[in-house]
Design a binder for these strands. Structure first.
Lengths: 242, 242
DNA sequence: CAGACATTAATTGTCTGACATATGAAAATC
DNA sequence: GATTTTCATATGTCAGACAATTAATGTCTG
């Protein structure tokens, strides 16, 4: 692991990259302990502060964890699906909010991915998944729900749908797409009538899943997508200024 | 933005979180300049080193960029699809390598997502996409290619397929799934015979896309998935120890 | 001997102050 | 007016110190 002091990049960035490469290449395996900060500063011939900045960069990516005390130090972290998913959601949310992606485009991507799960979910879904979805339906039927709460339940419903495909890799990949949509969905004002319609469409999805009917699931998702897009369309027409 | 000195979390982690929250909430917009490190250390009542560690954490997530000099400082970064995609690929790759995810599971997720693009690609694909895919086919036909190079071309082919759906949100989401598979694919030894077969299946996909035939694209992808899974199956049988 | 308690050593977390380096803007000079 | 110099400001790096945490070790006591 070599460092170039004349590189345009910060020393701490170079050191972080060197350690990251070692992890990706498998030279540092999970739970392996890195040399202490003092040892690293000797190896790289930089100050301890610089090493620490490098380690903080890696910690921000959940690549390492640190522990104080006698047997402490920095350890290669096992990246869990949970951690990765949380990072993915944050990144996706910011990506959408910072790049004025059209609602149409984001929505299209989301439903395209969800449809991909639908077929698998039909063969794999268990009763617990259906119960989770039905619980969310019950929640969405409450009149006094705020728009935000309605959207949050909507996200939970779709997360359950994705999870019912019983493939954690798929769930992880789709979490970003589904959850990152929430801020955009929150912009929609759901009237009582639109809520009833969405509830009905959600019900169709659950029914189709219950009967393990892939094409019915696909059709219900298509309808829901069209309706969501139409609601967003109305929003743009109603508020052309903002 | 408040900091709790008695919290179990590091001060630098708390400060990073506070600034991150401000960015996500839109209180700090793109290209906004953060207070200088000295000002931040006064505001949070911590030392400059602690502030710097917090800023490095944010920089590691591409949330800010820093610039030296008189008018320099830390600025809120516009997260580009390119940045987000690179981060997603790194995370996904590590996630798969650290959690002994089965080839079957990862492969299944990948093809499920690709199928989702297929329908859209049929209506949206442009000739440039087809040309890119055909170029990769030509590449894959070369006998002297190493297994690694063959896999790399395979990834490029599938990336082109995903991109031909012309939805950047979709491309971003799928890049992780497709590219993270490469290390797993690299474990497969591609015989001359299996290469010919894969080449043929890839050809079928391109043909179906050219004719804008969604069900034909889907069928070719199904065949390719089955064949890939079968190759992996052979690998496990042939090398049960490793 | 067993358990409670104190000591110690190792390690990260934080602070302080200094200097190096980069860079735009203002001032001085031609 | 154009060019050069100076300067102020900001991040990048370094060095050294102390605080806080924690496991291992040593010590005392019953």
């Amino acid at each position: 692991m070599k460092i170039d002091p004349s590189s345009p990049k910060d020393l701490s960035a170079q050191i972080a990259q060197a350690i990251r490469d070692a992890i990706v290449a498998g030279k540092l395996i999970v739970d392996a302990r890195l040399p202490s900060e003092t040892e690293l500063s000797d190896q790289f011939n930089v100050s301890r502060s610089t090493v620490r900045e490098a380690l903080k960069r890696l910690a921000a990516q959940s690549l390492i964890r640190t522990q104080r005390g006698a047997t402490g130090g920095a350890f290669v972290n096992r990246l869990t699906f949970e951690d990765a998913q949380a990072m993915h959601v944050t990144t996706s949310t910011l990506l959408l909010s910072m790049n004025d992606v059209s609602f149409t485009q984001a929505c299209e991507a989301r439903y395209a991915l969800e449809r991909a799960c639908a077929v698998m979910a039909c063969t794999r879904r268990e009763s617990s998944h259906l119960e989770k979805m039905k619980a969310e339906l019950g929640h969405q039927a409450q009149d006094e729900l705020s728009d935000e709460a309605f959207c949050a339940s909507d996200v939970a419903f779709h997360r359950a749908l994705v999870d019912s495909a019983s493939n954690p890799v798929l769930s992880y990949q789709l979490a970003g797409a589904v959850e990152a949509m929430q801020p955009l969905m929150n912009m929609i004002t759901f009237t009582a009538r639109s809520r009833v319609k969405i509830l009905m469409l959600h019900g169709n999805i659950v029914d189709a899943l219950e009967q393990r009917d892939p094409s019915a699931v696909k059709d219900s998702l298509d309808l829901l997508e069209s309706y969501t897009q139409a609601l967003a369309e109305d929003l743009i027409v109603a508020r052309p200024s903002g």
